[in-house]
């Protein structure tokens, strides 16, 4: 990562100013985002929006690693899917309330991230990508065989339950506000982490790991904490998704899901705060409209990968930010 500073760069260095680490342009963009969250369910189908927000949070979690630590995890479906399975199972079998079920999913995903991250951070670059992919494939095979996941059928008819045991989430509109709140908290958390002193060290590691080491930082510890955090948030996203749809299946632990979150983040803009959200919106919308085209969706996704990597590496938000000469 270190040698890149111009067009091929993963992300520009950020300078902190303004409120809560948000620059003025970012505050404006945040305002637009919050306004969209508030208005959208009255115009768009809430279930579609909830799906979008789950993937947006998933992509934000992924972006924390690739955009700010420079680690490309190619196995994030393992945490997303496991979060979904655990949340779905605890909600259905033990009747836990949704917030506790999601929390359980997040904790398990985080523990999994701890173990896998501990193993994977021994290598960098493409080896890191291959290792995380292989680990995720192991989780996939585990989920195919483990009794609690329901194998090919998945866990079905997961109840949404009542938030804090008091507010029923059975209506899509109530559920939407819950999902939107979870997303916003996760989004702000990632942003807060990136702009904390800890986040500055992460960026230093991304730019030049040997130098960060020479300054006395235990870079492996920093990377591991970022990995755990990212896995936990991916677990939250997966858990919420399984509650929204009432189902947790093998699709969410499959390697193609890992590829999708890479694509979302890449399209939106690696290492931008708002990029993963925009990228998730673009890809989920596209899948929605192209659903009946079958395998062509895969071809189109592949083509987008190729086009973005060859011609348009900053992604949508990165290009806008570059044109406006601001950080987004």
């Amino acid at each position: 990562m270190a040698s890149e500073t111009t067009a091929g760069t993963i992300a520009p260095a950020t300078s902190d100013d303004g409120v809560l680490g948000f620059s003025r342009a970012q505050l404006a963009a945040l305002g637009v985002l919050v306004a969209f969250l508030a208005i959208a369910p009255f115009f768009l189908y809430p279930v579609f929006l909830m799906k979008l927000l789950c993937f947006a949070l998933f992509a934000c979690a992924f972006n924390l690693l690739i955009g700010y630590v420079g680690l490309l995890s190619f196995g994030h479906a393992a945490y997303f899917g496991m979060g979904g399975y655990i949340a779905g199972y605890t909600a259905k079998a033990y009747g836990l309330t949704p917030e506790v079920a999601v929390l359980c999913g997040a904790v398990v995903a985080g523990l999994q991230g701890w173990v896998f991250g501990w193993i994977a951070i021994r290598r960098q670059g493409i080896y890191f990508a291959m290792i995380t992919l292989a680990m995720a494939q192991m989780v996939y095979f585990f989920c195919v065989q483990a009794p609690f996941t329901g194998g090919e059928d998945g866990i079905q008819a997961i109840p949404r339950g009542s938030l804090f045991g008091a507010i029923s989430l059975s209506s899509d509109m109530t559920m939407y506000w819950f999902v939107a709140a979870v997303f916003l908290i996760g989004f702000l958390l990632v942003h807060r982490v990136i702009h904390s002193p800890y986040g500055q060290v992460l960026k230093a590691i991304r730019e030049n790991e040997p130098r960060a080491t020479s300054l006395g930082y235990r870079t492996d510890d920093y990377k591991l904490v970022a990995f755990i955090l990212s896995a936990t948030l991916a677990g939250v996203a997966g858990g919420v998704k399984s509650l929204v749809f009432g189902i947790a299946t093998l699709t969410d632990v499959h390697w193609s899901m890992s590829g999708e979150v890479v694509l979302m983040t890449l399209v939106g803009g690696l290492g931008t705060v708002f990029g993963p959200v925009v990228g998730a919106a673009v890809i989920v919308t596209m899948q929605n409209y192209l659903a009946e085209m079958g395998a062509w969706v895969t071809v189109i996704q592949g083509a987008i990968f190729v086009a973005v990597v060859l011609a348009f590496r900053r992604g949508i938000v990165g290009e806008i930010a570059n044109a406006l000469k601001v950080k987004l």
């Binding site: 490309l72 996704q301 592949g302 083509a303 990968f305």
Partner: peptide, 10 residues
């Protein structure tokens, strides 16, 4: 890696 992954998908 990302490019060849995309080509593989196509």
């Amino acid at each position: 890696l990302l490019l060849t992954f995309g080509i593989g998908l196509m």
